[in-house]
Design a protein around this nucleic acid. Sequence first.
DNA 1: TCCTATACCGAAAAATTATTCAGTATGGAA
DNA 2: TTCCATACTGAATAATTTTTCGGTATAGGA
Lengths: 137, 137
Amino acid sequence: MYERKIKEDLDCGIVVAMKVFGAKWKPCIIDAISRGIKRPSELHREITSTSARVIDMQLSELVDYGIVSKKIFPGFPLCVEYSLTEVGETIVPILMQLNQWGLKNKDLVKNKDNQPLHVELPAEARFIQPRNCLANN
Amino acid sequence: MYERKIKEDLDCGIVVAMKVFGAKWKPCIIDAISRGIKRPSELHREITSTSARVIDMQLSELVDYGIVSKKIFPGFPLCVEYSLTEVGETIVPILMQLNQWGLKNKDLVKNKDNQPLHVELPAEARFIQPRNCLANN
DNA sequence: TCCTATACCGAAAAATTATTCAGTATGGAA
DNA sequence: TTCCATACTGAATAATTTTTCGGTATAGGA
């Protein structure tokens, strides 16, 4: 298992939130489970852009975090079901909101030239002194 | 400049949102600017856990995305001010929400042993057949 | 001329995250 | 006995992000 060299500040809300929201496949997995896709094999079929191994790893981290719970049915063939915990459910609306934000603003990120040239002020601005500029406005 | 080998789907809202929310220092920079810290040198003083170079890089990406706008005052010494654009302002409440979520749930992520053992069902469950288990429940 | 403060950038290195590959294990069916 | 489907794992590699280091440029002051 990988041991970090730069420790992260788990008292910062954003750092904590990003352990869940900011991983490449976790939002995708959480969304699928929230839509009722429960078994690993189903998840693998649903999420085709990455490998089963990747899904399994992210999934097990979500289980460790208590965001997803795992039930094993010891019949045959082996059957496992994942579902969102109570805390896991609280992620879904935030995820939807992030998704909405992204959809609404995707052109910004796509274009990447939204402020192509720096805004230069007219000549008079040259007399603005740095301390002024720092103090107010 | 780094050229990705695996292209990202910028039509997915989450992928787009994570370009902004999911970078290590962007939330921190956006928060500082929203609190009125405008000049690069101020930002460097405010955010001491990383180097000026890192802040500058993330900042310039936020400018490229049109989330932060940059004004140059050509006096002396050189004076630059950053501020949130209209779109940039829409990020702040979502950031606050993510932060709240993280603060509320940080123990989950810290502990990482929230479901230490798999839940095994009692013996009767052995008769649940896989197709049933897939079909409903 | 050299020093200051401001703001910025290129490129290598380090750290982290994601991916691939090759396995393990269970229990029934052929 | 060998095969299947299910669920899962270790370890190497690749991809990406973050960090560090050293540099540029402007314009005034000593």
